[in-house]
Amino acid sequence: MQDGAAQSDANPAPLPEKMSVTLTVNGTERRFSVLPWVSLLDALRDHLDLTGTKKGCDHGQCGACTVLVDGRRINSCLTLAVMRDGAHVTTIEGLATNGALDPLQQAFIDHDAFQCGYCTPGQICSGIGLIAEGRAKSPHEIREFMSGNICRCGAYPNIVAAIQQAMGTKP
């Protein structure tokens, strides 16, 4: 919002053309058209009706929007859908197979690694990414490498325990 009496008779900048984007989301090819300013997060939520991925800040400050793009965990709020044309995206909706939960999803339930559940899709996608990276092993390392996912309910110790369970380093 701009203060002061700026030129208000000028026409606003025109909107560009919509662009076609193809993503493979949770194993299914999805084609849609969006304006270039649509983030991957908003594309998933508003255009593909995959609302499991959450918006918590829209600025890469909370991790709630974490998804896996080509196997890597990223903040979907800070990338444009058009930039990801052709990518493989995995969201929280794509982790269970034929109704069987991913081991990390089950571990989150077992260890009560959430309360309100809003950061949970991002935490789980982040945890899947962490496990795939194969770097973080000790509790110190898991804490550090999960620090991009804020949980305001404060479930952190349970999140660490859930990841350890899924990694097979803790029952």
Binding site: G60, T66, R73, I74, N75, L78, G129, F145, G148
Partner: peptide
């Protein structure tokens, strides 16, 4: 710096 997600991007 940052988080692993941001470092990935």
């Amino acid at each position: 710096g940052a988080s692993q997600q941001l470092r990935n991007m």
